[in-house]
Structure formats: structure tokens, C-alpha cells
Amino acid sequence: MKANWIASFIGMTAFAACALTTPALAVANPQPVELIGDVKVEKVVVENGKETRSWIKPQVVVPGDRLTFSTQYRNTSTDKVDNFVVTNPIPAGVMLAPDGAATFDVSVDGGKTWGKLGALQVADGKGGQRAALHSDVTHVRWTLPVLNPGTTGTLTYNAIVR
């Protein structure tokens, strides 16, 4: 019991320290892991017939634009974290882009069941089932078995403004 108290205290300290350096994390909870979300929009500039793609902070977004949503994670504690599962509902107004959609688990039923996109089915509206499309995806999910202290990384998915 006493050991647990100490562990919590250390966790809190660690978090407080991290909160100072990463103001994006506003809520002061004693979490051993932090998540920082970001979004970029793809801009294609065609000059002299050559396409240049760049990813910029979105200022103007219209239907058909491609967005990349990223979530940076970091184990800010001194302990190992297990079964780290990051879930991201696809926001209303965008759909998952087809590229890269096969690299993580997705759900097409609001997060109830999960699998690779190619293995999922949805109702076809005519009483039957059809293969799920990227536009049917409601959630994406990444599973990391172990996060060692200090481990950091970024999870991204591409989306298209509907």
C-alpha cells in the first residue's frame, strides 16, 4: 500500500515536469503517457508541370482536401507501459484515405469490432453484406505491446475532407 502511494507520487512529479515542457497537455492528471494530436493539410503546387507536395498547417480546408492527423505518444514515466492501445474516431466530415489504411486495425461499426479493412464487411443496404470501404471506417486503432520509459513515436492516418 505504501509502495503504491510512492509510485503515484513519482508519477505525478514526472507529469508535472513534462507539463512544463509540453503546454499542449493541459489537463493535469498523473498519466505515465502523453498524447499530442496534430493535423496537417496536403497542398499540391504544380509549377512548370512539376507537382510539389507539401504538408502545412491548415488554413483553408475544402471538400476533397487531404489531411494527415497525427498523434504523438511518449512514455513520460519511469515505468514500462504495457498494452498501449491508441484509438482515434474518424471525425465527422472526413473519411479515411485509402492509402495506408491497411496498416492498422479499423472499425466500421463505431468501435465495436475491429480488424484489417480488407477483412471487414458492412451492410449493403439491400439486406446483404459487402466488403467495407475506406469511407466506411469509423475508428482507427494502433496497438503497441510495450512502451519502455522515454519511448516516443507518432501515429498517423490520412483522411479526405468529405
Partner: peptide, 14 residues
Amino acid sequence: TLIENTASATYSSG
């Protein structure tokens, strides 16, 4: 329309 994206994570520690 506002497009709002939030990720969440679950984990175990010990």
C-alpha cells in the same frame, strides 16, 4: 463545419 480529431489510449502499468 468543424472537423475535430481526438485520439485516446488505454494502457496498463504494472
